[in-house]
Design a protein around this nucleic acid. Structure first.
Lengths: 191, 191
DNA sequence: AAGATATATTTCATTTCGATATATTAAAAC
DNA sequence: GTTTTAATATATCGAAATGAAATATATCTT
């Protein structure tokens, strides 16, 4: 899904500024499967305004910088539905953590332990975030069936990850420890 | 992890051409957490050759186009270790499937069912791939402890995904069906 | 014999990322 | 009470990555 469609998705729920769209990708209901930085969002909104998919109103705010609030148009909703009708691209999971763990044999047991502990706490943070009933859909309290499905999917996956890491931590650290002692033996033998 | 480090990771296991590195991202031991297309791999290899991280030998082949085989240098191994020593960036999961499912309320029950079924069969395909004992590490049969850890992690996560989807399919399709009948009722009432 | 599939690299426009600059105000620390 | 930090808000731009097509050769399938 390109950044434009992702923005339309957010705007289909409620009007928002670029900054608020960013927050929806960061903390909101899309946080565990979509993303986009300012550098992609603002140009996408400009392009879509020119194409008539969204409209923009500058709102002066009391005690806050002015913001440009975008609304989705009928043409924009049609574009979103068109994108939804296409077969979705394959999911992709990118993980520096797994890349590091792949080379566990070249790293210290201490390092491996920290890597796993950090990842567990990050997953647990996301679990409490997804499980939080106050975590409303951008101020829209009524969650649709679809929104709840993806929320529970994320919850389930993060829980599975924590489960695996807690179960496998001892084995991974032990193996790293064993590797270290082999290194020590060979360096002692070299002396 | 940038594309250069990912390539170094592959080359640290064995020498390879750009094409073979691509295959390692597509089907190999990195397939479920790293990626990279030709458009990124070839420029990365050129850059790294210029920087002395890899060396290149053109190998004429019988009955195949010639290939450029890259080998990692000591400097390259150090660069890989440096990258491994840094704190890994957050994992990211990008899913058009979940994006579509978020808007399940606007889609037909048939569509929702197909979306879920397709995703299940994709996950199952990856499960059999990761579980396959013949799926060697680019022809290197001996799997390290780290490589096996990430393999089992991938297996566990994919299994968790299938589990969720099979369990929740009925509920999701039923909800979509209910939505359809509401639409039918309102259009009947309008007549 | 034709067409599809696999090996192999290059190129390039479009898209996205990531970091920085700019400005304002609220909250927190000292 | 004042400085610093965090949050709100947008714009910009070079660097990096993506994705698709172009090019070439050889094998396998029908």
């Amino acid at each position: 899904m390109d950044i434009k469609t992702s923005c339309l998705g957010v705007l289909s729920i409620c009007d928002a500024s670029g900054y608020e769209i960013r927050k929806a990708f960061e903390d909101g209901p899309f946080s565990h499967f979509a993303e986009g930085g300012f550098g992609s969002i603002y140009p996408a909104l400009n392009k879509m305004e020119a194409d008539g998919l969204v409209t923009c109103t500058t709102q002066a705010q009391d005690k806050r910088p002015a913001k440009k609030v975008y609304s989705i148009t009928t043409k924009g909703r049609l574009a979103l539905m068109d994108a939804l009708a296409k077969d979705p691209a394959d999911d992709k999971y990118k993980s520096d953590f797994l890349f590091s763990m792949f080379f566990a044999d070249f790293q210290s047991a201490r390092r491996i332990e920290r890597l796993i502990d950090d990842r567990i706490s990050q997953f647990e943070k996301e679990i409490s975030h997804l499980g939080d009933p106050d975590n409303e859909c951008m101020g829209v309290p009524k969650m649709t069936e679809g929104a709840d499905f993806v929320r529970r999917f994320g919850l389930h996956m993060h829980q599975a990850a924590v489960e695996f890491l807690k179960e496998e931590k001892f084995r991974a650290v032990s193996a790293a420890l064993k590797g270290e002692s082999l290194v020590n033996q060979s360096s002692e033998a070299a002396e």
